[in-house]
Computed example of a mutant assay.
Amino acid sequence: MSHKLPVIVADGQLRAYQHGVNVLVQTDFGLTVSYDLLYHTRVSVPGSYYGRMCGLCGNYKGQQDDKFLLPDGRVAPDSASFGSAWQVQIPEASCTDKCAGNSCPVCKKERKDVFKEHNYCGLLTAPDGPFAACHGTVSPTVYFNNCLDDVCLGNGDAQVLCQSIHSYVTACQEATVTIQPWRSASFCPLTCPANSHYEICADLCITTCTGDIMDCPETCAEGCQCDEGFFFDGQDCVTLESCGCFERGRYYKVPPHLNPYTSQELG
């Protein structure tokens, strides 16, 4: 069963809500998962979990040399084997390996060089670019290399490029670093729904139909901001009169046939 955001379950122990273009899932013990619903996921845990983690995100020991450990403690021969080893069987769901070892596609260096330019992945590392202020706080190296691999294997696909850059934007904003505008009408434009507009620091958590029920994050997040006088209902920006209700941790939209404003428009 699907529900509109925000959602609060388990007596407040788990909550999910929109934060810019990402969705945040938070627990009462400090775990936060940020997901853009397409490409990139960030998982954060409090310092009390230092040295007590394992899996795809590493062991949280501050050591890069043990990040590819298999469940039995051995070092994985490659990233594909590492990912496969940590699969979890879920009823009615399947995860199929696309490649393994030498069968995985590799992008040639000559082709990668094309995507190192400023109008591609090079924007991430440009010393005079919109993310320069973040370089000293969040290293762009991993994001740059991932961008090169993904965009190269995607034959320069614009969506892959934009999502790769957005991944670094999210990391910088979560680190409370102010970045400069980087999207334009011709480069990675973000299409916003009616009654909203793009902002590099959008705030959907406060301007929601549910009111002040969430502990909104202090960090910034780019996304679509509702225009003045409109409120986010988990999907669109609507007038206050068109907002639904929030009951038992879940938000319910007003059915179209009961919404006087929608009915008037349809009539």
Rank of each mutant, 00 (worst) to 15 (best):
220 C>R: 03
173 Q>E: 10
163 Q>W: 06
47 G>D: 07
86 W>D: 00
24 L>T: 07
64 Q>N: 11
48 S>K: 14
221 A>W: 02
96 T>I: 08
212 D>N: 15
8 I>L: 13
157 D>E: 05
234 G>I: 04
130 P>F: 14
189 P>Y: 11
183 R>H: 12
137 T>Y: 07
51 G>K: 12
87 Q>E: 12
226 C>T: 11
58 G>Y: 07
120 Y>I: 04
243 C>M: 07
18 Q>G: 04
113 D>P: 01
103 S>C: 07
209 C>H: 04
147 C>W: 05
244 G>Y: 14
47 G>P: 02
17 Y>D: 00
175 A>H: 05
188 C>P: 09
141 T>H: 11
199 E>N: 03
78 D>C: 08
245 C>E: 12
98 K>Q: 14
104 C>N: 05
130 P>V: 08
146 N>D: 09
122 G>K: 06
23 V>M: 06
84 S>R: 13
38 L>T: 13
217 P>Y: 07
83 G>H: 01
22 N>P: 02
91 P>V: 08
142 V>Y: 09
117 E>Y: 04
182 W>D: 00
88 V>M: 14
29 F>S: 12
211 G>C: 04
222 E>D: 13
34 S>Y: 01
154 G>P: 03
184 S>K: 11
181 P>K: 15
3 H>F: 13
11 D>R: 09
200 I>K: 03
115 F>V: 07
204 L>A: 03
45 V>S: 02
42 R>T: 05
202 A>F: 11
124 L>N: 05
10 A>E: 14
238 V>H: 03
105 P>S: 10
188 C>W: 05
89 Q>C: 10
73 G>K: 10
262 T>D: 14
175 A>M: 03
206 I>S: 15
136 G>P: 01
225 Q>S: 01
1 M>V: 15
11 D>C: 11
213 I>E: 01
255 P>W: 15
32 T>D: 07
148 L>A: 04
41 T>M: 11
142 V>E: 12
265 E>I: 10
230 F>W: 05
226 C>A: 09
79 S>D: 15
206 I>L: 10
75 V>Q: 07
41 T>R: 06
188 C>I: 11
1 M>W: 09
139 S>G: 08
136 G>D: 10
249 G>H: 08
210 T>C: 00
28 D>F: 03
251 Y>K: 01
89 Q>M: 08
2 S>I: 11
131 F>H: 02
75 V>G: 02
122 G>W: 02
48 S>D: 15
232 F>G: 01
263 S>V: 14
55 G>E: 00
217 P>L: 09
212 D>V: 08
110 E>S: 10
9 V>E: 13
100 A>G: 14
29 F>A: 05
235 Q>W: 06
179 I>R: 07
14 L>A: 14
258 L>C: 15
150 D>I: 05
232 F>W: 15
117 E>I: 03
262 T>Q: 13
240 L>W: 08
169 V>M: 11
204 L>Y: 03
227 D>G: 14
12 G>C: 13
215 D>G: 08
50 Y>Q: 12
247 E>D: 14
187 F>V: 10
85 A>Y: 10
82 F>C: 06
22 N>F: 06
166 H>T: 08
120 Y>R: 10
184 S>L: 04
223 G>T: 13
211 G>N: 09
31 L>K: 06
255 P>G: 13
153 L>Q: 14
138 V>R: 02
70 L>R: 02
25 V>W: 09
188 C>H: 06
37 L>E: 03
89 Q>G: 09
